[in-house]
Amino acid sequence: MKLLIAICIAALAASAQPRTPILLELFTSEGCSSCPPADRLVESLDKQQPFANAELIVLGEHVDYWDGAWKDRFSSSAHTRRQWEFARHFGLSGVYTPQLVVDGQSEFVGSNGPDAKIAIQKALASQKHPLSLTATALGNKLKATISISGLGSKGATVFLALAENQAESKVTRGENAGHLLKHVAIVRTLQSIGEITNDFRKDLDLNLPAASGGLRVVAFVQDRSTGRILAIAQVKL
């Protein structure tokens, strides 16, 4: 009995441990034959949350440069531009899919589980600044408030993403033809909502995109010169 109580206390202590939020951005496409394994890895990280001291916050950003034979309905040129910005931060000569970027400080092939583990452990070593996010859906409207104080970092941008929790597509053309592709946290909108000053607060009233798979709201602060994520929070609607 004493042993059971001790185990319960240890479990409670573990669950009460603060979890560091870490942003995982998957650059992917339904037209890319190498991407489904990366989608599966990210889905598993999102659902299983395998790191006790990390809250993994996932965003699937579908790029548009594979929209030849098969138009990925989630693709956006804004995601492609964001991936190129990361390429510049990482000193890469180009972009590729699937690519996973962790906290804006590590990048690797998006299906590579061992590299994901290393990158997440590296991200855990850096402290995140607290970011307060509240979000409520009212019909097709979203009311959200984001506040950050004392970050004191100049040259950082605050972003807000609305992501669909999950979706499936039956691909009929291209190299993934005949496959049913599953995605999680698919970014439907990603916008810059302001620059960091000493105390940042913003109240937003936004239209919600149609999303049958449910939505999540992700707010994060990114250092413009290094690409690193300084603060992040998520609310599932």
Partner: peptide, 8 residues
């Protein structure tokens, strides 16, 4: 493409 990635 490789067995792991595809390039634009």
């Amino acid at each position: 493409c490789s067995d792991q990635i595809c390039l634009p």
